[in-house]
Amino acid sequence: MSNKLLKINKINVSAAIHGAVSNTIDSKTKTENERETGVKILHDLSLDINEGETHVLLGPNGAGKSTLGYTLIGSPEYVVTEGEIIFDGNDITHETADKRAKMGMFMSFQSPVDVPGITLNDFIKEAIRSRTGKSIPIFKYKRELAKTMEALSMDEKYAERDVNVGFSGGEKKKSEILQLLMLNPKFAILDETDSGLDVDAVRTVSAGIAEYQKRQNGALLIITHSTRILSSLKVDYTHIMINGHMAATGGPELVEEINQNGFKRFLNQN
């Protein structure tokens, strides 16, 4: 029997309005309830994900899909005004991002930032050390890194380059999947991972995700508005989001339906 890894219970999410000292003084001294909020983006949203399951979230542009991703990973840009998020038995609704990551969450970002001055190699090594709390054997780590980079068709030189600095769109996405495979989280959110990738890169990234599915009984939430990347992945559930509401939930067959008919059927419901 699968264990419920993630339970999202009727959350309402609004955009946060930043105070003068955005994300620093304000978010430290104010609790979530005290923060000023703006437009409501997600309405009464619920979703359950069990260990090892792969969920796909589809919807037209502006539906709020990425917002859900950012809310789950703990971005200060959004505030959960109602409802709760339980991850691995813990209420993480108002928890900070790093704590969620330490509990086993991960997000592959749509537009990964540059992290100048820190090499990809050092970055991943530090992240692993930070998460496990202990030093990892260098030799084993280096071998693992080289193997994974090769599987992703990533030139080994990228390991010594500053994280994402000067990387092409495709390389940035590969860098995200590389981190996914090296950090091995329990649950990963992939936000528009295939945007900006050419055909070969999509295949490679897709294979990387499939590898993650195999290795650890990892759960996935794949957020996308095109279905290219899903073609060779095992999909357990498909959700359709329209205007911040969960419009439908189904099995993998829903993906094919969207491919054929688009989102027409669901747009009128709201």
Binding site: S22, D98, F109, G117, L183
Partner: peptide, 26 residues
């Protein structure tokens, strides 16, 4: 940049660790 901090936190770095790493990197 708060986006950079979020990115690092999502890899398990605490805000303090992120700050140190970014200053070193800078």
């Amino acid at each position: 940049d708060p986006k950079t901090t979020l990115y690092m936190e999502s890899r398990g770095f605490t805000p303090e660790e992120a700050r140190r790493l970014l200053i070193h990197g800078h």
